[in-house]
Design a protein around this nucleic acid. Structure first.
Length: 528
RNA sequence: GGCCCCUUCGUCUAGUGGUCUAGGACUCCGGCCUUUCACGCCGGCAACACGGGUUCGAGUCCCGUAGGGGUCACCA
């Protein structure tokens, strides 16, 4: 039997990181067995524009490389894969359930239901409908209708015995039938509800394994009742724990961003992302752009494999030490029986650390290509890029090394792409390294003369030159190199100073030092 | 509140009665390296929720308590 799994997102406009984890487990389970992973769109309740709300989700899956065998864009033998287009199937199922006596027309009014519900609550017992307005025959129905009532279709749930099933993650599970409410499966207007649609679709699509978050565990009995009443075969269930908030066990929710922003690590990641977003023209509103959403990672230059590697370990492990999983390794080793039962909180730091190590392992050429995209979006480099500038970027990326954790970090090295006269000096380092040391100006001016005259302008020659200079002046490298960095880059931190100067070239390096000296003179004058 | 679920370092986890003075990873804290920043290297802190059993022996089994969570729609 081939394994068929599905992920069924509602088109909400964004792809949630917890959802992706569920999708990943589904994908892994199907793909490792040579089965199919299906994307089904749960849009029965959707009133919004589908293009707008679905596309970001599809984009997210595409970016992550979680390909689906059947669903939107690719079609498949069970098309359509949109619930909004499958109403006829659900209605046929509801009709069948009605005919077999597993469902009934209910003529109660919302107010009457509410009264019963409140009574149950007061007596601290489960709410089970009295079935006072249940119509099982056309005569009864006519009678209720003559009273001006209208009906919905409800499930006629068993009132005794137990619903038992095996769950791949939770083991043997059992619920009392008697506690299950008679849920509505079809509205008065003929439209159908989620549980019915879900069961019918899973059956129609030949889904063999239903892998979903635990919050659906308590919905399972009613779905089993539907499927058994319809004569369907029961799928394998696997209810996986949800992804919890950073630092708590609450379910991760996109609505509580304000609260997460109080979390130190979450905030730091968000701010790093927002910094990049701002420069490439991406809206950084925390409600639509934050570490709970997959877009966030794509937009700031994460590697999909790093995200996936982090997510696969959120609630699953292979053994006591293996942490690095390529896609192939995940496919080889993943198994439902090693899924953890307790919820796992989302940890930005760990995700970041996977990103750092994946980025570090990325070949220079690919890393450069990723970075180039960000430089172009920030309008620092033309698109298409000129060949010479391409080489320059490659050198910068190489020298920056692991200082570029996400591709958007390249923007920290924007100094190379800014015209000398437009360069800005960070205030604090300028004070500390240029203004405060009495001899900084003198040393820089002297060293600038040497830079102007030196034969070669590669990193090694520059290093020799500086060491020679320090010896002549009777100082150590540390006495001048900080001022040099501030003068040449405007910043306190960066990669190797000799690489920096070599990449910039003689003309620009000397020019910048002169600009810094002029600036210094201005300040000194102003202070006197 | 009813029902269901969960509970090992701050976080993700290993652990299926003795090999657990509880292992790994991230974070954190020292130190080394160093022109800054980062990396890297070395070292360190840090956990079996609690109480009863069962057993020669319990993180591991049973019961209870506490805490946390999910769910109770004509949402999905």
């Amino acid at each position: 039997m081939t394994i068929r799994t599905r992920f069924a997102p509602s088109p909400t406009g964004y792809l949630h990181i917890g959802g992706v984890r569920t999708a990943l487990f589904n994908w892994l389970l199907a793909k490792q067995a040579g089965g199919q992973f299906i994307l089904r769109i749960d849009d029965t309740d959707s009133r919004r524009n589908l293009d707008e709300t679905l596309q970001p989700i599809l984009d997210g899956f595409n970016w992550l490389g979680l390909d689906w065998d059947e669903g939107p864009e690719v079609g498949g033998p069970h098309t359509p894969y949109f619930q909004s287009q499958r109403l006829a199937h659900y209605q046929a199922a509801a009709k069948k359930l009605l005919a077999s006596g597993h469902a009934y027309r209910d003529y109660s009014s919302p107010a009457e239901m509410a009264t019963e519900r409140e009574a149950a609550e007061k007596e601290k017992r489960d709410f089970v409908y009295s079935r006072t307005w249940m119509a099982e025959s056309d005569e009864q129905a006519a009678e209720f209708e003559s009273q001006g009532r209208s009906f919905v279709v409800r499930l006629k749930m068993p009132r005794d015995g137990k619903c038992e099933f095996h769950d791949l993650v939770r083991g043997d599970v059992s619920f009392d039938w008697g506690r299950e409410a008679d849920h509505v499966i079809q509205r008065g207007d003929g439209t159908c509800l989620y549980h019915l649609a879900n069961v019918v679709d899973d059956h129609d699509f030949d889904v063999t394994h239903v892998v979903r978050a635990v919050e659906h565990l308590s919905n399972t009995p009613r779905q089993i009742f539907i499927l058994q009443s319809l004569g369907y075969e029961m799928p394998q269930y696997a209810h996986i724990p949800f992804v919890a908030e950073p630092g708590s066990k609450n379910k991760l929710s996109k609505r509580k961003i304000d609260q997460y922003l109080n979390n130190k690590d979450f905030k730091r990641l968000y701010q790093a992302g927002a910094e990049i977003a701002k420069r490439i023209g991406v809206e950084a509103d925390p409600y639509s752009f934050n570490p709970v959403l997959v877009d966030f990672y794509r937009d700031i230059g994460f590697l999909p494999d790093a995200v996936l590697n982090y997510l696969v370990l959120l609630g699953w492990s292979l053994d006591d030490k293996t942490e690095d999983f390529s896609r192939e390794e995940m496919l080889e080793h993943f198994s439902a029986d090693r899924i953890v039962r307790s919820e796992a909180s989302f940890d930005c730091q760990k995700l970041l650390s996977f990103q750092a190590s994946y980025m570090n392992a990325l070949p220079l050429k690919q890393k450069t290509k990723m970075c180039l995209g960000f430089l172009q979006k920030a309008n620092l480099v033309s698109d298409p890029v000129e060949c010479e500038q391409g080489n320059l970027i490659s050198r910068i990326v190489e020298s920056a090394g692991d200082r570029i954790c996400m591709a958007g970090d390249i923007l920290k090295f924007d100094t190379f792409f800014i015209a000398d006269q437009n360069m800005e000096f960070e205030e604090k380092p300028f004070q500390k390294r240029m203004v405060k040391p009495a001899n900084a100006g003198f040393l820089l001016a002297e060293f600038n003369k040497i830079l102007n005259a030196t034969d070669d302008f590669d990193a090694a020659s520059l290093e020799t030159a500086l060491h020679g200079f320090c010896e002549t002046q009777g100082i150590v490298v540390g006495d001048v190199i900080h001022a040099l960095r501030v003068a040449v880059t405007g910043k306190a931190a960066g990669f190797g100073m000799f690489d920096t100067m070599a990449i910039l070239g003689r003309e620009r390096t000397c020019n910048r030092i002169q600009i810094a000296l002029d600036e210094l003179a201005k300040r000194v004058e102003a202070n006197q």
